[in-house]
Amino acid sequence: MAMTKQEKLDAKAEKAYEKKHRRKYKLTTGDIIFNILNYGFFGIFTISCIFPFYYIFINTISSRSAVTRGEVLFYPIGVTLKNYLDILKVDDVFRAFGVSITRTIVGTALMVLATGFIGYLVTKEEMWHRKLWYRFLIITMYFNAGIIPWYMNMNMLGLTDHFIAYIIPGIVAPYNIILVKTYIESIPGELEESAFMDGAGYLTVFWKIVWPLSRPILATIAIFGAVGHWNSFTDSLILMQNTPKLYTLQHLLYNYLNQATNIGAAMNSGDSAAAAAAAEMLNNKVIKYTVAMTSIIPILLVYPFMQRYFEKGIMLGAVKG
């Protein structure tokens, strides 16, 4: 990961500090034992966090016969992309991947746009009953009616078994509104004022000034929002009960892992021989790993970008209104 200038300076200062102190205090035996244990523990724990992903990955790129014989343990054998090509042929996986990608992109984009705009509006003191509306939005973080009333409500609004049920409920996100509002409040007001002097309206000021200036916080909520969308599974499970073609990738994987719906895949391809072959294929554990891997890879791809926003992101759990 690239270090910023400040971080580089910090590291340098730290090293100089260590050097100075190493001369002053020699490591005692106790220190050495402590360090071995400490470094060892963190090393093992870190490996436990990496190895499962690596293990799944090498299984998916190894030849199937090697996996069946139980030879693939620490490195791939007979490297092949056959598994990945095979799952492309399963309509269900392909479609679920599409649903997940679409909801992630569209859902996140709308959420960020709306949150930016709401965050801007609630900083405007002159709004009619501003405090009341702000509280109205924020208080929803602290209660919820429960999952069944929520489901019945979605049912009542006619959103069950529709794709938009993934998107619309997530547009107003109170946590994120607080983050954006706090950030916008820290932007100096002069720019905005001068724009108003020039006759700009609220929309222009928001779009031309506030939006570009709050990019760091918007990027934070975008990336956390996207991960949330990609990982969400309960809403697919509850809202799409009658519409398997709208299952998200996570939901599909859950079904595969439970071996419940291999018939579903089989029914998609018309003739029974192909159906049997498809069902057979999905029963293979390596195919399950491959589906899992396709759903992990996007997260791992955005992960390096996410790290930059951890400090702000952790606030997601610890902010106050």
Binding site: H251, L253, L257, K285, Y289, A292, I296, I299, Y303
Partner: peptide
């Protein structure tokens, strides 16, 4: 940042 379904996939693989 990995969903519980994927954690289960990992558990399954291990």
């Amino acid at each position: 940042f990995i969903s519980w379904v994927l954690i289960y996939a990992i558990a399954f693989a291990m």
